[in-house]
């Protein structure tokens, strides 16, 4: 089956991001396809490469990046939600006159149309949130 996933909560505060990650990993292990993972609301914070969790804890951002590299996942961060919350790639930083960028490897920033398209293209869109 072809799945798309929507992640609506940020890392650590809510379990939604963990559950989404575990769902994606399990679906891939069962041979399903993940068409796209879309990060919205505070979920965009799953894509900052500046998190430094304690060493004895899971590294949620790194975990997404590694899974993306391993399975060529399309991890998309909503641009409007990202701009509100201070998450940007190098191009966005330049465009907005900011002195830093923080998007983690394996993520890309794009518009909400990518969420709708993910819903259209997939057999199931699974929402993880509060």
């Amino acid at each position: 089956m072809k799945f798309s996933v929507l992640v609506n909560e940020g890392p650590y505060t809510h379990e939604a991001s963990d559950t989404a990650y575990q769902f994606v990993r399990a679906a891939l292990a069962k041979g399903h396809e993940i068409y796209r993972v879309f990060f919205y609301h505070d979920g965009v914070n799953n894509g900052t490469r500046l998190t430094v969790p304690p060493q004895d804890d899971r590294n949620i951002v790194k975990r997404w990046s590694e899974l993306a590299a391993q399975h060529k996942l399309d991890l998309v961060v909503c641009i409007a939600a990202a701009q509100r919350r201070g998450l940007m790639d190098a191009a966005e930083a330049k465009r907005n006159g900011k002195d830093a960028d923080n998007l983690a490897p394996g993520f890309r920033i794009s518009g909400l149309g990518q969420l709708i398209e993910a819903g259209i293209q997939a057999d199931r869109l699974v929402v993880f949130g509060d």
């Binding site: 609506n8 919205y40 609301h41 409007a80 939600a81 509100r84 518009g111 909400l112 149309g113 969420l115 709708i116 398209e117 259209i120």
Partner: peptide, 19 residues
């Protein structure tokens, strides 16, 4: 919380997809 506003933003963008 921001969920209501950001939901409405998805609705408005999604309208262009003629679903």
């Amino acid at each position: 919380s921001i969920y209501a506003l950001e939901s409405l933003e998805v609705v408005l963008i999604g309208a262009a997809f003629e679903q």
